[in-house]
Design a protein around this nucleic acid. Sequence first.
DNA 1: CATTCGTTCAACCATATAGGTGAATAATAT
DNA 2: ATATTATTCACCTATATGGTTGAACGAATG
Lengths: 125, 125
Amino acid sequence: MDDESLSTILKAASDPTRRAILTLLAQQGPLRVTDIHSRFDMSLNSVSKHIKALERAGLVKRRTEWREHLIEVDMGPLSLIDAWFAELRSIWELRLEALDGILSKEDPEDDRPEPDRRTRHRRRA
Amino acid sequence: MDDESLSTILKAASDPTRRAILTLLAQQGPLRVTDIHSRFDMSLNSVSKHIKALERAGLVKRRTEWREHLIEVDMGPLSLIDAWFAELRSIWELRLEALDGILSKEDPEDDRPEPDRRTRHRRRA
DNA sequence: CATTCGTTCAACCATATAGGTGAATAATAT
DNA sequence: ATATTATTCACCTATATGGTTGAACGAATG
C-alpha cells in the first residue's frame, strides 16, 4: 500500500551494516547505542546514524530509560515487505492462469502484443 | 548467505520506479525496454538504467530475440529475501524462548547485561 | 546503399548518503 | 561544582545514484 514507507524499509534493510545490527538485536535483545557500537569497527556517530535510519523505517524502536536509550528490533514492518512480495507473486500467477485460459480462444494479437517474429516491421499502438 | 547479493536485491527493490517496473512485468509478461518506457514519464535511458539495476540483482532476465530485448521478471531472488527474514525471525524467537528458560535459573548478570536500573555506575567489560 | 528502429554507452549535473571529527546536551557519580 | 558517561547535533568530504542529453552501434527495411 504505502509505497513510500516500503521504499524506506527496503532501503534501510539494503545496507549490510544495518542488517548486521538487526541480527545483533534479534539475538541479544534490546541494547544501548554504545553496546551496538562496541561490536562494529566504525565510529559511534556512524552507528547512531544507522540506527536512526532503522528507526525511520520502523525496524527498530527506541525505549529511553533514565539516561540510556534501549534499542530493540521490531519485526512489524517486515510483514509489509512480505505483503508486497506476495502481491507481486499473485499478480504474476494470475497472468499465467489467464494466459492458460486464453490459449485457444481470443485473438491473441490485441491483448498483449506478442512479438510476431521475423514478419515485416513491428508497428505498435 | 550471500550478503552482497542480498544487499543488491534489496537496494534494487527499494526504488519505487523499479518496483513499478516489476509489477508491470508481472502483469504484462515479457516486454521490450521501449514498451516499459512508454508507461513511465522518464527518459528511455533512465528506464534502461533501472532495468540494468534489476538485471544486476537478478530480479529480471533478458532474453534477446532478433533485435528486441525481451525483459521478463524472475521471482527467484525474492526467496533469498524471504530466507533472510525467516532467519531473522527465528533468531529473535529463539532468544525469547531461551529467555523464558533462564527466567529462574542462572545468574542473569553475565549472560546479557540486563540494565540494573538506578544502581551505581554501570561498568561493563 | 541509406534509413529507421531498439538499445546501449559516455559524459554531465544534482542530490543523497556513508563515513568521519568535534562540539553540545543531559544525567549520573564523585 | 566537576568529571564521566551516553547520546545527539552540526559540519565536512567522498562516493553513489537518479536523472538528463547526445552519440554510437547493430539489425532489419526499403
